[in-house]
Amino acid sequence: MTELLIRESIGEAAPGSATAQPVAATRRERVVRALRFLGRRPGLVASIVFVVLVLVAAFVPSVLAPGDPNVGVPADKLQAPSAAHMFGTDYLGRDVYTRVVHGAALSLQATVIAVAVALVVGGLLGLLAGFVGRWVDEGLMRLVDVLMAIPAVLLSLALITALGYGTVKVAIAVGIASVANFARVMRAETLRIRQSTYVEAARSVGTRWYVTLRRHVLPNAAGPVLVLAVLEFGLAILAVSSLSFLGYGAPPPAPEWGSLIAEGRNYIAASWWLCAMPGFAIAATVLSVNRISRALDGEWSRAR
């Protein structure tokens, strides 16, 4: 036997080792533990704060930027970042900071729709494939293989060709392009759990299949699928902004992160901030979301 108490995962711990200690369960202790966990991870705390700020920007942008994103002062056009204009101004003299803050709403809306489409459609397909098995599994997984064979961007572009332009259509196109990922993870989780000893044990004590599905399969599969959903959120922000950059998203003058960069592109030689600032917003959001996804993916359970 190796000294398994040093291994990270308790779940696969030593056969018969007496390492599992009762875990503190009172509310106070849990809060203390959570605080200590966060205290050791300043990056995670910063990520959470940033994501909260982005959410505020999406729902009540005027809290962070009271000005009107579409009104500019032509005299102040193309000013570099300064105390007056934190992110500088654009070619119509509009404040870039205000436009970035107000752009969060459209970008986030599209991202949420995309992830929801992927999660619901992909999750159901995966659950069906994993739980029913046989030819249903066979058929659905071949379909997933095909979706994986077409690069996501091209699949989204094909969908846009058929559906037309606009934020919501872009969002749906991005969501459908990542259905395959969710289907695969959900199927793998469902299969893993369905074949686990504890599900067989449940079956052998007479539990019916739908009870097994509800009480064993869904709760145990939820974790990994949610982790993927958070990760996918970051990817969807990137995909949505790419398509907006290419000009398939919201029509101007509505601010949207991708289209802001596309607008700024014409002034890239002299006014770098037009492109740089919205890009930083995208990058910071994606980084934060990815960091949180990593924390959800077992870091918490390993740390205790």
Binding site: E12, T197, Y198, T207, R208, N220
Partner: peptide, 22 residues
């Protein structure tokens, strides 16, 4: 393997009463 035969999401009470519920 007692590590695999109990659902990690269940409490011991839920594990023991599962046959009764079934």
């Amino acid at each position: 393997n007692p590590y695999a035969s109990l659902d990690p999401k269940f409490s011991v009470e839920e594990v023991v009463t599962e046959p009764l519920r079934a």
